[in-house]
Nucleic acid binder design. Structure first.
Lengths: 148, 148
DNA sequence: ACAAAAAAAGTATTAGAGTACTTAATAGTA
DNA sequence: TACTATTAAGTACTCTAATACTTTTTTTGT
């Protein structure tokens, strides 16, 4: 199944992981995050490395190691994470092929600009702190899972 | 530059080509379309083949060969071409990894559904006939270019 | 010091899009 | 009727980005 919007598994992992880590006041390791979210541990690890390198997370190695958040989740927008992973994006859908495109305006009409704008707006406003755990999933129940 | 919306060069070629062919009452070949639009002739040819196979175009080989439209352009929506090329799309951005995702609702909020709906609506309404040539580009001037 | 755990770094595989090349069909011409 | 040029159709290759896997390094508890 093709996706209309380009959101790679990589950015999905980044946003999920940050949200989860933000809810905890102790460190959590890659295996635990993978178990809780269902992403592959390998891929997840790679993304977490990136988030460490960009100063969203602090990592510690060895037994009892793991990751903690070192930024205020209210200050982390989905957009900045999305762009960190996917790179900056453009809403120019002319493929730069034709110096003399014979068509008036963009053949797609205004829709591309319209929805790009909406997406960016929404992802700029929404922060990691806005993402909530299910109500029946308590901090307690997560900790229990971690220790299995 | 990454694109927010998944529109491959392939669907762009399909929509551009159909629109151009729709404006002509004589056949036009792949080289000519490539010259007018700036797409690579190779890629373009491949896409035109697909459109022939799906009964949007009729092709003829040999000298004076080329392509003509065999459907009413008012009846061809951008959506059907888009989906023909890209495949059916899904707006499920849960990557199907976790049977027990710990998050409430979708972490992205409602934005994905919202803009998917807008996109589909717009692409369903807009047809090949709606795509206009630039005002200063006449049928005549296209024909001139064709014969260079 | 040693062994186990964990992150980090490096390597390999895969899938899809786009490209290049080859084959088959057609029309004009002599 | 055969020859040649032209054009679409078909096939095979390449390149890249995303994801998966493996090895190395660091750390901690005994």
């Amino acid at each position: 199944m093709n996706k209309l919007i380009n959101i790679s598994e990589a950015s999905s992992i980044a946003i999920h992981s940050l949200s989860l880590i933000a809810k905890l006041d102790q460190s959590i390791n890659a295996t635990q995050i993978a178990n809780l979210t269902g992403f592959s541990k390998n891929h997840l690890s790679k993304i977490l490395q990136l988030l460490v390198k960009h100063d969203y997370l602090k990592s510690s190695r060895g037994p009892k190691g793991g990751f903690v958040l070192i930024k205020d989740p209210k200050e982390i927008s989905l957009l900045e994470i999305y762009e960190l992973i996917e790179g900056a994006h453009s809403d120019n859908y002319c493929f730069d092929h034709s110096p003399v495109c014979p068509f008036q305006d963009c053949i797609y009409g205004d829709i591309i600009q319209d929805i790009s704008m909406r997406f960016i707006d929404a992802f700029k406003k929404r922060t990691i702190a806005d993402i909530k755990l299910k109500q029946n999933i308590s901090y307690q129940s997560i900790l229990e899972k971690l220790n299995r």
